[in-house]
Design a protein around this nucleic acid. Sequence first.
DNA 1: AGAAATTTGTCCGTATGTATC
DNA 2: AGATACATACGGACAAATTTC
Lengths: 141, 141
Amino acid sequence: MPTPHYGQPRYRVIADELRRRITNAVIPPGSLLPTESALTAEFRASRGTIRQAIALLRDERLVATEHGRGTYANPDHSHKDSPEEGPQVERRQRQVLADPELAALFAVEVGTTLVEQQDVTRINGAVRAVARVYRLQRASQ
Amino acid sequence: MPTPHYGQPRYRVIADELRRRITNAVIPPGSLLPTESALTAEFRASRGTIRQAIALLRDERLVATEHGRGTYANPDHSHKDSPEEGPQVERRQRQVLADPELAALFAVEVGTTLVEQQDVTRINGAVRAVARVYRLQRASQ
DNA sequence: AGAAATTTGTCCGTATGTATC
DNA sequence: AGATACATACGGACAAATTTC
């Protein structure tokens, strides 16, 4: 068979199927996925395609791969039975003292009080990004 | 042809070199990187290896790829032709080591390499805000 | 408008290196 | 030491989006 990939690419279809099995606990949390060669046989895809699919799940932190061992499902078991889906953001604000780099940027003395706002973005409980925004403290009148 | 990868894998070495050129403006912001086949010739690596290197930079948001067009360096066209007085943003990426606080958030070891993206927003030349976003660096594939 | 060339995207098959058991 | 499994790398083929003529 040539290489037709109308619509969804093969590796995405395979990733979707594996994701379904993991979220439905067909592949239980903490257990090993089938080996790459087993998946190669099951999906009739090449190893490269299987690895592309697994790489997608790895980016979602849905699996974790260990060299020479295998690929584990759901490594972070924050299993509070909370069916969270979309990203969740925690926002926190605090005062910090300007280090030399920030002081130079804001053109203030080192040690000047700055306001730091920190946003922690989580996807499925795993931290995806930490954003910190620094501003000068607002001069009150 | 054998496939030795002593020490650093080739795609990582190539990614490091391309990252250097971009941050040193040897490849100016907004410009196109050499095509995959050109990079194949220059580094004498297969196309797959070149694409692996570029994928790393894409994960760092250091480049952006468009199907049929090419891969752009530093996709942050913040300066248009119009001399606006609005806020101007300078974006910069660098790799930093996780301090204890970030390590705890990302659930990684202290010293793990993170990607930091810093945006400095200026209004009329004065720094108004400094934003730093931290993300995990993609491990492999 | 249309065909050709260019460039990235997907997929395959294979070979070899490296880590774990 | 041997077997198993993932990691890296090569080369070839065709698909799809864009640009060029």
